[in-house]
Write a protein that binds this DNA or RNA. Sequence first.
DNA 1: AGCCTTGGTAACAGCCCGGTCACGAGCGCG
DNA 2: CGCGCTCGTGACCGGGCTGTTACCAAGGCT
Lengths: 235, 235
Amino acid sequence: MPMPDDPAPRLLVVDDEPNIRELLSVSLRFSGFEVAAAATGRDALESAEQDPPDLVVLDVMLPDLDGFQVARRLRESRQVPILFLTARDALQDKVTGLTLGGDDYVTKPFSLEEVVARIRSVLRRTRGDTPSAARYRVGDLELNEDAHEVRRAGRLIELSPTEYKLLRYLMLNSGRVLSKAQILDRVWNYDFAGQHGIVESYISFLRHKLESQGPRMIYTVRGLGYILREPHEAD
Amino acid sequence: MPMPDDPAPRLLVVDDEPNIRELLSVSLRFSGFEVAAAATGRDALESAEQDPPDLVVLDVMLPDLDGFQVARRLRESRQVPILFLTARDALQDKVTGLTLGGDDYVTKPFSLEEVVARIRSVLRRTRGDTPSAARYRVGDLELNEDAHEVRRAGRLIELSPTEYKLLRYLMLNSGRVLSKAQILDRVWNYDFAGQHGIVESYISFLRHKLESQGPRMIYTVRGLGYILREPHEAD
DNA sequence: AGCCTTGGTAACAGCCCGGTCACGAGCGCG
DNA sequence: CGCGCTCGTGACCGGGCTGTTACCAAGGCT
């Protein structure tokens, strides 16, 4: 696998709510990014000037400047892609106008899987010379991000949005046991307060769809969680 | 999108409104061009001299010199194609007189699809070794840019302008999921503030016209958007 | 073996989302 | 001046997705 040893992309997270800022900083750092954080627009501009990031994660609701002004000012000095965070209802239309240049946006409350996926996607598009190609593969299972398609042994498998997000998370962490708590945290929205039984439900759905005609790929590790891996003999 | 391995065409965007200038710069850069920008006629002339572009996107309403003077001065040193931006009503006839030499124009408010398509068209005509040939094809669906014609399995399909722009955008991005926000941004005029329901309407129209006697080609990806692709077995 | 914990699955209800229809406004053309 | 086409909006309807619950199966421990 020709994994070039790029330096970790540098992100700047801008959000005034300490909880969200922390949540994002910690998880994105854990996902392999180098993360700086700012609570206000002014701090963000200063930080970006001192230490230019590869991408900015920017809440549109900020106490001092609003996100669009910050975006404009950021762009004055240097072209930098932006992932906007926005409330679901408000400003939706204003944001859409800004998603043109390879920028993107995510509505609050988001799931971390969503945010990480979007960041990767934007970085791939903007820095990458090849403007497309995000495919993951585990055994005979393939996932194509652009077409949002999943195939096993070449056959197309239809998945609901949640099923897809769950499978992507499992595939990106194949060969590693994931606890239900981890899964709940990453795949579901951060304010989700439901039962963890829902993870079991969706694991069940996935198993149906992708193991209906093929060997098992999602294994239960009792007391711990689940692991996706290609099947090997002694199962 | 298989980008031919020519060097990216160099554009010069000239507009005094920062919003429009930004919008165009960012989106055109994203569409694969190399973009310089200028806010006034004088800046434009200077930039063009220092770094001659392959094409100039030129607003006719500028604070210092008007677009026609700028065009003339640009042409004094070197023959360069120009895409004029103009208000809908004013100067229409004056502009048309200038579009003879391979130039073209777009009225404000424009849609980005329109601008990109026109730029490509002008570049093809002026630099093109192939004097004309803009045909896109997905499965048995063909779009001929020159004739403004769409055919499925050889049969002509009549489309309204909006339907055509939408289909072109889908075809240029076939095999990739496009969100309604993306579609709205690219296909509709930049100042359009309506509901995204209109995208659904036009998708519906297109489906009627081009799937009336043939398998489905525009697929809905729930929660995400639409994707155009040639039909495959497991649907 | 029996008990208790943990996971799997099916069934269900609410709800959100998308598809389509129908109406109205604007515009061009006759 | 009016006819018709096209664009855009609003409303209604249907279906699928989501998340919960309940019941059953399996595993592990004493």
